[in-house]
Amino acid sequence: MASASTRLLLTIQTALFIYRQSAVDLSCIPRLSASTVDDGSILFEWISADYRIGFSIEPDPRESSWFLITSENLGSVSASGFLQGVDLNRLTIWLLGFIVAYS
């Protein structure tokens, strides 16, 4: 799990670098919070008043997942999925793009 978490954080760092190279203002991005959870997982979340975007790194990597949920103000979007088999770079860039657009 530590390696999966490290991989995720490095992927986020890379995505932020890509946006920074494109001169995107990243000052609006909320702090990424991290929590260890009783079910054995690690939760990473970006939290704003109108959305929550997160990654759950699970003891069983096949169960690790991501989510995006928004308030009515942002269209009541609800999306989630497993991380396994997903291009984490593209997913992270997409999620960060959402944050940049709506923060």
Binding site: L43, E45, I47, Y51, R52, G54, S56, E58, E63, S65, W66, F67, I69, T70, S71, S78, A79, S80, G81, F82
Partner: peptide, 14 residues
């Protein structure tokens, strides 16, 4: 499913 449970938990927290 576990991902949907965690999505729902985030929705309640929101």
């Amino acid at each position: 499913s576990r991902p949907t449970m965690k999505l729902i938990a985030a929705g309640i927290a929101l």
